[in-house]
C-alpha cells in the first residue's frame, strides 16, 4: 500500500479529503516499484485522473513534480524508483503542481 498526496485539483476530482491510499499489484520485477507503477494503480482507482498527471501512459506533464522522502524524483520521470519507505507506507509519494498561475 502506497499513500499518494495529490495536487489540489486532482484531490477534488478524486473526491478525497487528504492523501489517497493506492494498492500496487504484486510482482514488480525484483521488487522494484516505479513512479509509473504508482500512477498506473492511482489511475485504475481514480480513472478521472487519467491524462491529468502524465500524457496518456507516457511522461509526466510539464509542471508536475514528484517527491518522496525528501528527494525530487521528477528528473527520472515515470521510470524513477520509489524509495523503500514509500513502498512500505511510512512516507507518502507527493505529486505537486509547480508554482504557477495568478
Amino acid at each position: 500500500m502506497v499513500t499518494v498526496v495529490l495536487p489540489p485539483h486532482c484531490r477534488r476530482l478524486a473526491g478525497a479529503a487528504g492523501p489517497v491510499p493506492v494498492t500496487l499489484p504484486r510482482g514488480g520485477a525484483g521488487g522494484r516499484v516505479t513512479v509509473g507503477m504508482v500512477l498506473d494503480a492511482l489511475e485504475a482507482a481514480y480513472p478521472v485522473l487519467r491524462g491529468l498527471l502524465r500524457d496518456g501512459s507516457g511522461p509526466l506533464r510539464p509542471f508536475i513534480r514528484v517527491f518522496a522522502a525528501g528527494e525530487d524524483l521528477t528528473p527520472a520521470g515515470v521510470a524513477a524508483e520509489v524509495p523503500r519507505s514509500v513502498q512500505e507506507g511510512s512516507e507518502p509519494l507527493r505529486i505537486v503542481g509547480a508554482i504557477a498561475g495568478g
Binding site: H9, C10, R50, G51, L52, G97, A100, G101
Partner: peptide, 22 residues
C-alpha cells in the same frame, strides 16, 4: 497548465457534472 484538458458533462443543466473523455 498543470493538468491539461478536462471535459466535464452535466445532464441536469449544470447542477452536477461528470468527467468524460479527455
Amino acid at each position: 497548465a498543470w493538468h491539461g484538458t478536462l471535459i466535464q458533462r452535466s445532464r441536469d443543466g449544470g447542477r452536477t457534472w461528470e468527467p468524460v473523455g479527455n
